[in-house]
Design a protein around this nucleic acid. Structure first.
Lengths: 61, 61
DNA sequence: ACGGCTATGTATAAAAG
DNA sequence: TCTTTTATACATAGCCG
């Protein structure tokens, strides 16, 4: 996706890594929520950034 | 995505829901792993299907 | 560094086998 | 019902301001 294809390996440039982290984390949460709703599943997602910050998502019943 | 647009709400037809669950769960795991590698983050994903089956993914350090 | 844009790659809904 | 195909929608990499 995007303007060019990227290899799946650690992004070395820290500013790029930070931007990608933010974008993909948002995308992942969205997909996780969609799976939960579409398929009536219970889900939990936990992400710790490399700087130690926590992000999480779960559906509640 | 796909041939038609779908609303984000529970898929009523159980066979369709099952197929979508399988495809989207695989996609979600892939995205989760990619985020972990690209952005050097620790991640955990847990999914319980509506039939009570457990699927999980986490990166190990 | 953030926020928006858009060309392009990827995921996937529906169909076909 | 499982797998494969294909057209289309969606996510996002690189840019620009």
């Amino acid at each position: 996706m995007g303007r060019g294809k990227i290899a799946i390996q650690r992004i070395e440039k820290s500013t790029s890594r930070q931007v990608t982290f933010c974008k993909r984390r948002n995308g992942l949460v969205k997909k996780t929520r969609e799976l939960s709703i579409l398929c009536d599943a219970e889900v939990g997602l936990i992400v710790f950034s490399c700087t130690g910050r926590l992000y999480e998502y779960s559906n509640t019943r």
